[in-house]
Lab assay of single mutants.
Amino acid sequence: HMTFVALYDYVASGETDLSFKKGERLQIVNNTEGDWWLAHSLTTGRTGYIPSNYVAPSD
């Protein structure tokens, strides 16, 4: 899985979304859904959809 880092805080707007904090590391499970990607937080262990423009590839 690709690892990304959150650029901003995001508060989930629905049950399927994943809240995260700036700097949180996320594994992308599925990024074929356009602007919303299914991600797994390496910080909280939770999985949900995130806005793709809130994250950047982590080196």
Rank of each mutant, 00 (worst) to 15 (best):
V29H: 15
M2T: 13
F4N: 01
H1P: 13
A12D: 03
I50L: 04
S19W: 03
V5Y: 09
G45E: 04
Y8I: 06
K21S: 11
T3M: 13
L18N: 02
L38N: 02
W36C: 07
K21V: 11
S13I: 14
A56W: 09
G14A: 13
Y49W: 15
F4P: 00
A56E: 11
T3C: 10
D17K: 12
H40R: 15
G14T: 13
A56R: 11
I28G: 03
S13R: 14
L38T: 03
N30D: 15
P57A: 11
T47Q: 09
Q27T: 12
G23S: 04
T44A: 04
K22G: 03
L26F: 15
I50T: 01
D59S: 13
N53M: 10
R25T: 12
A39M: 10
S19M: 06
H40G: 03
T47H: 07
Y8T: 06
L26S: 00
L7W: 03
L18K: 01
T16Q: 13
Y49K: 07
K22W: 04
G34I: 11
S58I: 15
L26K: 00
Y54R: 06
I50R: 00
V55K: 02
M2H: 12
N30Q: 10
K21W: 05
D9M: 02
T47W: 13
T47G: 05
A12E: 04
L38D: 01
L42W: 07
I50E: 00
T3S: 08
G14V: 10
T3N: 07
S58C: 14
V55G: 04
S41V: 02
A39E: 00
G14Q: 11
S41N: 10
W37H: 02
Y54G: 05
Y49D: 02
G14Y: 10
L7F: 03
T16C: 15
T3G: 06
P51W: 05
G48S: 01
H40C: 13
L18M: 15
I50M: 02
Q27S: 10
K21T: 10
Q27K: 14
K21D: 06
A39F: 02
L26Q: 00
T43V: 13
T43A: 12
S41H: 13
L42A: 06
Y49R: 08
E15I: 10
G45I: 01
M2K: 12
L26W: 02
D17S: 08
L38F: 12
H1A: 13
D59E: 14
R25H: 12
G45H: 15
R46Y: 08
H1S: 13
W37V: 08
P51I: 02
G14H: 13
L38C: 08
N53A: 14
G23L: 03
R25W: 14
P51E: 01
A12I: 03
F20E: 00
N31S: 13
G48V: 02
A12C: 05
G34Y: 08
A12G: 11
D17W: 08
D59P: 13
S52H: 08
N31P: 12
F4I: 04
D17F: 15
V29I: 15
T43W: 10
L38Y: 11
T16N: 14
A39D: 00
R46H: 08
F4W: 13
V5N: 03
N30I: 09
N30C: 11
L7K: 06
S52E: 03
Q27F: 15
F20K: 00
F4C: 09
N31H: 11
G14P: 03
N53H: 13
A6W: 00
D9V: 02
S41P: 00
Y8E: 08
V11F: 09
G45D: 06
A6Y: 00
A56M: 12
T16R: 13
N53F: 09
P51L: 05
F20G: 00
T43F: 08
G34R: 13
Q27C: 15
L26D: 00
H40D: 03
L26C: 01
W37C: 04
A12P: 05
R46W: 07
Y54P: 01
T16V: 11
G23I: 00
N30V: 09
T44M: 03
A56S: 10
A12H: 04
M2W: 09
S19L: 06
Y10P: 00
A56Q: 11
I28W: 02
P51D: 04
